[in-house]
Amino acid sequence: MGVVIRRAGESDRADVVRLLDEAFRDDPVSSWVFPDEEHRRRSHGGLMEAFLDLSLSQGFVDITQDGTAVALWWSVPAGEQEGEEEGPAQLQAAVDPDNARIGEIGRLTGEAHPTDRPHQYLHMIGVSPERQGEGLGSALIGAVLDRCDQEGLHAYLEASSSRSRALYTRLGFHFTGSAIDLPGGPQLWPMWRDPRPFAANGRDSGRFA
């Protein structure tokens, strides 16, 4: 039996924010955004909640039935979107006005983001530290990729480590060829996936409750 996955909603807010905060607070990217550890512990959850709000309004959020893994997806249409350039500054103002790195990472990822074709954008995927390595993240991603293949949709993400890049490569993503360099921080690797013939997948990635 695959991992049971359901669509998260407003009632899951506290649990999702807590899970993302726990999963990403000491991640290299989060550590770059909030270099002071004490400030990060105070402010990081607010950034995760802002990301959740964006996903609920612009896409969807999938969560495992036991609440130990969550994926934030944005449904991105083709073409430049109205207000897109102001988004990073607005996010910074809402979460941590004096922290220019929030706006900077939003600007850099936005510049790298493809705009020519509609796609599903995997913005974040978090797994409880004690459950990592059990395939929960792959199940969450695979369930959406199966739907992408059925509907002929592309998918996009930014890998934040060589380990995650290898995982996404196995799932059919390929590096677009130009890394995102966070000034004085880690690299991000934009990755794109074309839809595959659905019958060729052969995955049992998960099932929805």
Score class of each variant (00 low, 15 high):
D66A: 11
G177R: 12
E86A: 09
S161P: 00
L91S: 12
S75W: 10
V144S: 05
T176C: 11
H123Y: 10
D194I: 05
A100Y: 14
D98Y: 10
V61R: 01
L188N: 01
Y121R: 12
V95G: 04
Q120K: 14
P195Q: 01
F198G: 03
W192Y: 11
S75C: 14
A69N: 07
E84K: 03
S178A: 15
I125K: 04
D96W: 08
R163H: 09
T115A: 09
A100M: 12
E130C: 08
T169D: 05
V70R: 00
S138E: 02
H174G: 13
A93H: 07
V76A: 02
S164V: 15
R107P: 03
G106V: 01
R117F: 10
R193P: 00
P129L: 02
G87D: 09
S75P: 10
P77W: 05
L188A: 10
G184C: 08
S75I: 12
W73H: 05
A155V: 04
A166M: 08
P77S: 14
A112S: 15
G135L: 02
G135K: 06
S178T: 12
D98M: 02
V70Q: 00
G177E: 05
P88V: 03
A89P: 08
Q92M: 11
R107L: 06
T64C: 12
P195M: 13
L145P: 00
Q58P: 09
G87A: 11
A143R: 07
I102D: 00
E84P: 04
E111Q: 11
D98N: 05
F198Y: 04
V76R: 06
E134V: 04
Q132I: 04
A69S: 10
H113T: 11
L91Q: 09
E134D: 00
R193T: 02
P190R: 03
H119D: 11
V95L: 09
Y168D: 01
G126C: 09
L153H: 08
V70H: 01
Q81D: 08
P190W: 01
S160Q: 03
D96R: 03
E82Y: 08
I102H: 01
R165F: 06
G142S: 13
G185K: 08
S178C: 08
S160V: 06
D116F: 13
N99R: 03
G184T: 07
Q120G: 13
T68K: 15
A89K: 07
I102Q: 02
D181T: 11
G103K: 04
D66K: 07
Q120I: 11
R163V: 12
Q92V: 02
C148M: 08
Q120T: 15
A69V: 09
D62M: 10
D116C: 11
W73E: 05
H123T: 15
S138T: 05
G106I: 07
G137D: 04
P88R: 06
M124D: 14
P88I: 06
D181K: 06
Q81E: 15
W74T: 13
R165P: 03
D98E: 14
E82H: 14
E151H: 08
E134Q: 13
P195F: 03
L72S: 06
G87M: 11
R163E: 10
R147D: 07
L153T: 14
D181H: 07
G83Y: 04
E80D: 14
Y168T: 02
I141M: 15
A143L: 10
